[in-house]
Nucleic acid binder design. Structure first.
Lengths: 363, 363
DNA sequence: CTGAAAGCGCTTACAG
DNA sequence: CTGAAAGCGCTTACAG
């Protein structure tokens, strides 16, 4: 068989019990799952006794417990946590709203949030805002309607007043990577300004004066802070910045490629580029690989295999997992009542030199 | 300030309303959120009328609707979907259980599942099994207890009989990347066998005979299938395989490094390596970069920047997003009642040549 | 067009 | 040690 022509679909061999999917779901619609009431009837005990056994509460004789356990097994009972949640008020779930689950920067962050949630017995509901403020709001409010206990949000928008009623109602909330807009909330950030400033100063220290900056859309806080770091480093060194050296916008490859190529051509081409995030860095690496004249590069965000490229890519690294862990821990501190007032936590960045940032100016 | 010494924590300026986090949550514990009953009382209407307005049902006069809307705004009411869910029987949420949220292979897969879920109005709850069958089971059953409508599972274990009561109760389920064990279930796979066979045949076509295989633990279906592809390609070419050419186990860098170094030394070193997955490939690339003698390499799974390494890394690519999309679509077909019987879908892989797989044998 | 009653499957508060 | 009643916040089924 040529497996490149398309999908191969073959029926599975029927299971002994031979139930079809459609039958299963039709049954589900009519609520065929056993409830505590069914278990109680079968075991010949009261509802509360079943509840005690299911929850491991004391005050049940060994014999009663055994009868209840047998009924549970026989019926295939599994407690309906949505009913439990309704009664208890806490859902033991938290929401995570980020830009894009597929972006490698968010993988370790999500995983770290998940681990902390797990340690607190909570499940993680997550979704991507796709950098769209409306979609962020829609997602956040859907999570609030599900009554998640808390939210970890990497905001896309810059106005979060829509969250005020939810905060008042007690939804714990921590913003990560970018601050909340127009509301007072807990926030965990990387030192975007200092990291970019140090990265650009590193290029200056290696003799560069014409340094380009390619970043994300200026309405994104991290992009604005990193640009500010760039400008500060340049000003500190007494280097006036020409408009054509900075380019901000969406980070899709076409736009970044065009921006890089423009900076690298013309009468006074840049001799070094500071890339504002991992998406930008990757595209700039591609552009530079096609050119003969060496151009120095420092990127914000580390990425896998950066050390194996020729030359290795010097980066300003932030610890995505630590961002997630810190945010999640603060969230559960809020829920414990330990955390009394919103704070802003800033995590340090780290310059990792690998070669590309230490290249001297080509002219 | 030296931002490398630690975190900087500063209090946010107090918001005008000045409520502290602890107060918010204390209030929440006592259930201060307005309910439909509160809205009904304030608007001077019955409960059902509020329900009609909230759900956009017909049969409410414009004037009544306006009064209800005003009460909703004034109280900051948001419908409690966990109560709704209890009554309706469907939670409009699906669960995704994968190995590790932080693994770049699963990012695009998760995002694809999320997009399909979103198109069907469902939220995504997800978690990492960490390749531990017990943790997989714990997570899956927790999701069932929350009464997710369906599950997309990348299994860690090879016995899923624990899911039988859930399947009978109507939980839609699709397994992805690896088949279900001991139960009859819908499954979406890549052509691991064919992809590995073709990749190894590619090395053979370039003159290699001593070819190593480094893969994941053999109990993992994909690892076993890829090994089978390797053996088949070798057998088809009439090349007997020496035991020391194959190494299966955990894919952490230390183990893979040792395995690669062993194959590359000794009396009859391999001249080419087939790497069983993206984690393995990355480590093998590092090992090869440290050596002078060129060794050919083909890896299973594509990865970012593979084309920019020297040489570019030839890979057998699978479409992770397509795996996720296909699985999620099948899941919703089950829920629609469209899909009647469990099937096995196999997606093709694609060989991408970039240089490392076309190197001739060094001897 | 509108609403009172019953019920989803649990837990809470209480009584025996 | 055990259980009947009330209630979590909605929707369903029905009556006016």
């Amino acid at each position: 068989m040529d497996n490149r022509t398309g999908h191969r679909i073959v029926p599975e061999t029927a299971a002994p019990r031979g139930d079809r999917l459609a039958e299963r779901h039709a049954a589900a619609r009519y609520g065929n799952r056993p409830t505590m009431k069914d278990v109680a009837a079968r075991a010949g005990v009261g509802l509360k006794t079943v509840s005690r056994v299911v929850n491991g509460e004391p005050g049940v004789t060994a014999d009663t417990e055994r009868r209840v356990q047998e009924a549970i097994e026989a019926l295939g009972f599994r407690r309906n946590d949505s009913a439990r949640v309704l009664r208890k008020g806490r859902t033991a779930s938290i929401g995570l709203v980020l830009e894009d689950l597929a972006d490698p920067f968010y993988g370790p962050l999500s995983r770290a949030v998940e681990e902390v949630a797990r340690a607190h017995g909570a499940l993680l509901i997550n979704g991507s805002s796709a950098e769209d403020p409306d979609r962020e709001q829609e997602l956040v409010l859907a999570l609030c309607a599900r009554r998640v206990d808390g939210l970890v949000v990497i905001p896309a928008g810059d106005d979060h007043r829509y969250l005020e009623p939810e905060l008042r109602a007690g939804v714990a909330t921590v913003f990560v990577d970018r601050p909340a807009g127009q509301i007072d909330a807990d926030v965990v950030l990387s030192d975007n300004f200092g990291g970019a400033r140090d990265g650009v100063a590193h290029l200056i220290a290696h003799g560069h004066r014409r340094i380009g900056f390619i970043g994300d859309m200026p309405r994104i806080h991290t992009a604005a802070e990193r640009l500010r770091g760039y400008r500060t480093a340049m000003a500190d060194a007494g280097i006036p910045v020409t408009d054509s050296w900075t380019s901000l916008g969406v980070t899709d490859p076409q736009r970044v490629r065009r921006a890089a190529e423009e900076m690298l051509s013309g009468a006074e081409p840049v001799t070094a580029i500071f890339a504002g995030n991992n998406r930008v860095t990757v595209t700039v690496v591609r552009v530079l690989a096609e050119r003969s004249r060496p151009v120095a590069l420092v990127g914000f965000d580390d990425f896998e295999l950066a050390d194996l490229l020729q030359p290795g890519v010097t980066v300003v690294a932030q610890d995505a997992a630590q961002l997630g862990r810190t945010a999640a821990e603060r969230l559960f501190s809020q829920l414990d009542g330990t955390l009394l007032t919103p704070e802003r936590t800033e995590l340090p960045t780290r310059l990792i030199t690998r070669g590309s940032g230490e290249l001297p100016p080509a002219d």
